[in-house]
């Protein structure tokens, strides 16, 4: 039945492409989470009225974030080719997509982190200071735990955006389901391949959203 419905689909290839997509998404989500959280914390802490208030550093980080957020992803991939070549040694394959994915997503996530941190009640930070807390204690025991639901729902949104980015990266040779849909499906006019690849991407997105929502509701004690 499957062969009749999807005559052009080679399931091993689909499986391989799915693993590649999951790999690219997984690694870039983890790296984006770390890099974006650091950038977001810096943005927040150096902003006006906060612990490390510093207009210069804040302006530098903010413009870095804004520049990389405003470059269309497909252009970013091309702009980063020399950098990727230097870092990964190739511009093809799943690993070669990672620098662009991370650099594209981290600034986006950094802004979400900043917004999440700004939502924290200033009084709670003041209370921690009044107790004699160090800045590291405030970051790890107040800022991050108190904004965790927003951080998790932010990374959920970012992860879904990253799945979309991997599909785009696929077009320029990064592998994955996007690559498969484009090369094997669209260009060879095999609509069944495009269909299967799209459904799989859809399933990945749904699973990410479900897990994200579940975790957010579990950790939110407000």
């Amino acid at each position: 039945m499957w062969t009749e419905l999807f005559p052009n689909v080679i399931w091993e290839k689909i499986w391989e492409a799915t693993i590649e997509t999951l790999y690219m998404t997984g690694v870039s989500v983890i790296a984006t989470f770390i890099l974006g959280t650091i950038l977001g914390l810096l943005l927040f802490l150096t902003s006006k009225g906060n612990i490390w208030e510093n207009r210069l550093i804040n302006a530098v980080i903010a413009s870095f974030v804004n520049i990389f957020r405003s470059i269309p992803f497909i252009i970013l991939i091309i702009l980063l080719i020399p950098f990727t070549n230097l870092m990964v040694g190739t511009i093809l394959g799943a690993n070669a997509a990672l620098p662009a994915l991370i650099i594209g997503a981290a600034p986006f996530y950094a802004r979400m982190v900043e917004i999440a941190l700004r939502e924290i009640d200033k009084g709670v930070i003041e209370a921690a200071k009044a107790m004699g807390a160090k800045t590291t204690t405030i970051i790890f025991k107040v800022l991050i735990p108190e904004s965790l639901p927003a951080l998790v729902s932010g990374i959920t949104v970012t992860a879904i955006a990253l799945v979309g980015y991997t599909a785009m990266a696929g077009v320029v040779g990064a592998g994955g389901l996007g690559n498969l849909a484009y090369l094997e499906g669209f260009q060879r006019n095999h609509n069944d391949v495009t269909f299967v690849a799209t459904v799989l991407i859809l399933i990945i997105v749904f699973v990410i959203q479900f897990v994200g929502d579940f975790v957010t509701s579990k950790i939110d004690k407000r």
């Binding site: 009084g123 709670v124 735990p145």
Partner: peptide, 11 residues
């Protein structure tokens, strides 16, 4: 120190 709005950590 105690505060008007308590300033407890909800987490």
């Amino acid at each position: 120190m105690i505060f008007q709005h308590f300033n407890l950590l909800w987490s």
